[in-house]
Design a protein around this nucleic acid. Structure first.
Length: 267
DNA sequence: ATGACTGGAGTTTCCAGA
């Protein structure tokens, strides 16, 4: 099974890219972020034609998460569903969507598409909202699952966890997505029982990024950050065959500023 | 020359993204 995650920075602008990518790679399930359309306004017709079910939660002009899946969902979960204090996170339903699917050899696999708040500027109210959001997300997982559940949680976390995940740690150390507090919050989130698949496979490999600034010819110079992650629980560890960043679409005409991340599972 | 950002809202310019 081939799955992936991609922050597309507007589905209206990137519809053709997504279609092309799904077909080129023959993807079974793709998580999208920043669709930037209302829930009911997702342009789903073409994806349905290609054989995908669409599970989308959006907001007008911003945020928005979706899952395009060849396998039909048994259940859908949105935001911090069932959690008290969900109202303290008013945009969470535009940031988290999950589906439960059953496969031939596996029951109850949960897959999530998530878009963690950006948090800029550092130390602003929004920055602390981001940190709290990560903490609350872990609480949400603890309420609904255990570390033995079959979970794939993927999306744009807006955190580069380690120094090797940014092009120049010295320059970026006080910048959004790479501050000490964000990185600590990310690792605290992982402590629920999640594995960062890319680092599991390539613990020391440098220069692997998923986002490059539109400015400064950043992509050409490979000056990026690794902000998009595919996280899994322990029972899925042996099922993971490979994980990689598809840089191709970042070089297409009028690209998203993120590249997709793909993972192949023995499922 | 050492090098030009993008999308959305909404109305001409601002905000958010990372």
């Amino acid at each position: 099974m081939l799955i992936g995650t991609w922050n597309i920075n507007s589905i209206k602008m990137r519809k053709d890219h997504v279609e092309r990518f799904l077909q080129d790679k023959s993807i079974d399930l793709l998580a999208l972020q920043e669709t930037k359309v209302k829930t009911e306004e997702f342009p789903g017709f073409n994806f349905k034609k290609l054989g995908y079910e669409i599970y989308h939660q959006g907001g007008k002009g911003r945020n928005g998460v979706a899952i395009l899946s060849r396998i039909k969902a048994e259940r859908i979960i949105k935001g911090f569903e069932g959690l008290e204090e969900e109202e303290n996170f008013p945009d969470v339903k535009e940031r988290i969507v999950g589906i439960k699917i059953n496969l031939e050899n596996i029951d109850e696999l949960w897959v999530f598409s998530v878009y963690i708040p950006n948090g800029n500027p550092v130390n602003s109210e929004y920055y602390f909202y981001k940190l709290q959001f990560l903490w609350k997300f872990r609480e949400f997982l603890e309420k609904n699952f255990t570390k033995e559940s079959l979970l794939i949680i993927m999306g744009d976390f807006n955190v580069a966890p380690e120094e090797i995940d940014v092009y120049e740690p010295e320059i970026l150390k006080e910048s959004i997505c790479f501050t000490e507090r964000e990185r600590k919050s990310f690792f605290a989130f992982l402590e629920f029982g999640l594995i960062d698949t890319l680092r599991m496979k390539y613990p020391n490999k440098k220069g692997i990024f998923t986002w490059w600034d539109y400015q400064f010819s950043a992509f050409k110079k490979n000056q990026g950050m690794r902000l998009d992650h595919i996280l899994i629980t322990n029972p899925l560890k042996e099922k993971l065959k490979n994980i990689w960043v598809e840089k191709g679409p970042r070089g297409w005409e009028k690209p998203s500023d993120h590249a997709p991340v793909l993972a192949e599972f023995d499922l």
